[in-house]
């Protein structure tokens, strides 16, 4: 998985809450506070909880396969897309 082989972590200049299976993310990085609030659906929330610096992307993909009964290939593709999005927004990083 190339870059995804390390253990991803949440960035610290971020506030978040999980409410009824949905995650609300509020970023206050940079000079101006962005007014935009980002939300994650229940599947993404499940992944968000596993992004803790202790789970590799492979571990997380395995958990998705177990929980949602999808193929490893689909799980990995979905995970890659989400991680790319989250790291692009500065919500997670690869230490």
């Amino acid at each position: 998985m190339g870059k995804l082989r390390v253990f991803p972590q949440k960035t610290r200049d971020l506030a978040w809450r999980i409410i009824d299976d949905e995650t609300i993310l509020l970023s206050f990085r940079g000079k101006r506070v962005r007014d935009v609030v980002y939300t994650l659906n229940s599947t993404a929330t499940y992944i968000w909880k596993l992004i803790d610096g202790k789970h590799s992307p492979e571990d997380i993909a395995g958990r998705i396969v177990d929980k949602y009964g999808i193929s490893p290939r689909v799980a990995l593709a979905k995970l890659r897309a989400l991680m790319k999005d989250l790291s692009g927004r500065g919500y997670i990083y690869y230490p």
């Binding site: 409410i19 609300i24 509020l26 007014d35 935009v36 609030v37 980002y38 939300t39």
Partner: peptide, 16 residues
């Protein structure tokens, strides 16, 4: 969603 929209959405669910 903007912060204002989030505030209202949470408030409607009884969350400050």
């Amino acid at each position: 969603m903007t912060q204002h929209e989030l505030r209202l959405r949470l408030a409607r669910r009884g969350i400050p």
